[in-house]
Amino acid sequence: MKIAYLALGEEWQNNSAGHSHSFSICQNLAKLGNDVELFIRGKGKPQAFGRLKVSFINLPKAGGRISGLKELKKLSEKLKNFEIIQERFSVNPLSVLARFGFKGKTILEVNDPGVETWTGLRKIAYAPLIRLKLESCDAIITQTETIKKILKAQTKKPVFVISNAAAVKKASKRALEKARKEMKCKNGVVCAIFAGSFREWHGVRLIPKISRLVSGKKIRIVLIGNGELFEKVKSECKSIGNVRFLGAKPFEKIPELLQAADILIAPFVWNNKKFDFWWNPLKLFEYLAAGKPIVTTGFKEVRKIAKNAALYAKPEDIKEFARLLEKLAKNKNLRQRLGKKALQIARENTWEKKASETLKIYKKVLA
């Protein structure tokens, strides 16, 4: 099958979850014997990874000047050679124009409920575009049943659910030792890692308070990543001795850092009163693939992912979160049991499996 994957809102090799998901699913679709081309923002000559080709497209971003007509025309001509297009949703309207004249089928990948959750000018400005994208596709792929339910209220197009995944790859002993040293986690100190974007719903703003509650308990909190709340969180942690910031790390280095930890944390928060927590965090799949126990928030969609490999706190209950973290820190056997369960769940949610599920949807839509 000839497959085009449009990721026009993602930047090549920028360590984001969007980039990781796009490349991983394309790479595994290619491994199944398909000819796949990933179109993504970037510069340089196309790159080949077996039957996967990565081509760089620099269409103007949404809200920018309407330029780059040559790029748009070139993309439009290329797309005519494919049987199916999967477009990772972005608010860039030019992807609709790029598909003009395409005779195959289009799958829209929507990982955010979009217009139904927006308000004010943003909703007014983008609502027509979002409806156009929903109605111009043949089917929709999303990541959770919660998002599916929201989308079904917006469109009659078929909606399929395929979750995120992660690759299980064991790090070398040398890499783990190097990671522990970088995190300054000496023998006898339990290392708990948060890895990801410093965004509101990731709950990273709660970490300074949680860190204070476990200070003096031989628990080191290590934060990996950056984002809009990075400076605020770092400032609030200045007077706390058990916190270390590593900043953003290359995506390929994240697995060995996670495997070097003793516990992995994700204190998600949620302030949307209309809809339940809808995300399918790639972070949790990466945590599971590291084979480590998790302390996180007990939202329904989170429990579906981590299952019995995690301990769950109530939303924004920092005392309970700290108590669960301390409970794991004191109980090595419990950490090992949950870690084994985590690895088992990860092996049931590989990119290979998700690519196979995606291919079945393509065939159903093409039939």
Rank of each mutant, 00 (worst) to 15 (best):
K274E: 15
P113F: 03
S239G: 11
N271C: 11
Q143Y: 08
S16Y: 11
A30I: 02
S55L: 05
G104V: 06
I294W: 02
K184M: 13
A127C: 13
A290K: 00
N226V: 07
D317Y: 03
L334W: 05
V161I: 11
T146K: 02
R65H: 12
I130H: 13
E177H: 01
L134H: 01
E316K: 14
M183G: 00
G291P: 00
G33T: 08
N15V: 02
K170I: 02
G42E: 07
V204K: 01
E116Q: 11
G247F: 08
N226G: 14
K31V: 05
A139C: 12
V96F: 12
A329V: 04
L288M: 10
G247M: 05
E357I: 04
R65L: 15
P113Y: 04
A139S: 14
K340M: 12
T117R: 14
K273L: 15
I193Y: 00
L324G: 00
F275E: 04
V365F: 06
S197D: 11
V189R: 03
L366G: 07
L246W: 00
L52P: 01
L6D: 02
N349I: 13
L264V: 08
L282S: 09
T358A: 09
R244M: 12
K78Q: 13
M183Y: 00
K43N: 15
I85Y: 09
E326R: 08
S356Y: 05
A17N: 14
K283A: 06
L359E: 13
R205L: 09
K152S: 15
S197H: 11
K173H: 07
K232L: 12
V110D: 02
K209I: 09
R51L: 10
V189S: 06
F49N: 04
E348I: 08
L121E: 12
F89C: 13
K327I: 04
S55E: 08
G203W: 00
S95P: 02
L288H: 01
K148M: 02
Q86E: 15
E83F: 12
F268W: 13
A125R: 09
C137M: 10
Q143D: 11
E357R: 06
A342N: 10
K169V: 00
K80R: 15
L206V: 03
G196D: 09
A266Y: 00
K74L: 07
Y287D: 05
T297W: 01
N28Y: 10
I294Y: 03
P128V: 12
G247A: 07
V168H: 04
P208E: 05
V159T: 06
E182V: 01
L324I: 06
V190C: 06
R174I: 02
G63E: 13
K73H: 08
I240C: 11
L151G: 03
I85T: 12
E177N: 06
L32H: 12
L213T: 09
F100A: 14
I221Q: 03
T155V: 04
S22I: 04
F56P: 04
Y287H: 10
V36N: 03
N280A: 10
G50N: 10
R131K: 15
V365G: 03
Y287V: 07
A342G: 10
P93T: 08
R199A: 11
P158C: 01
K184V: 13
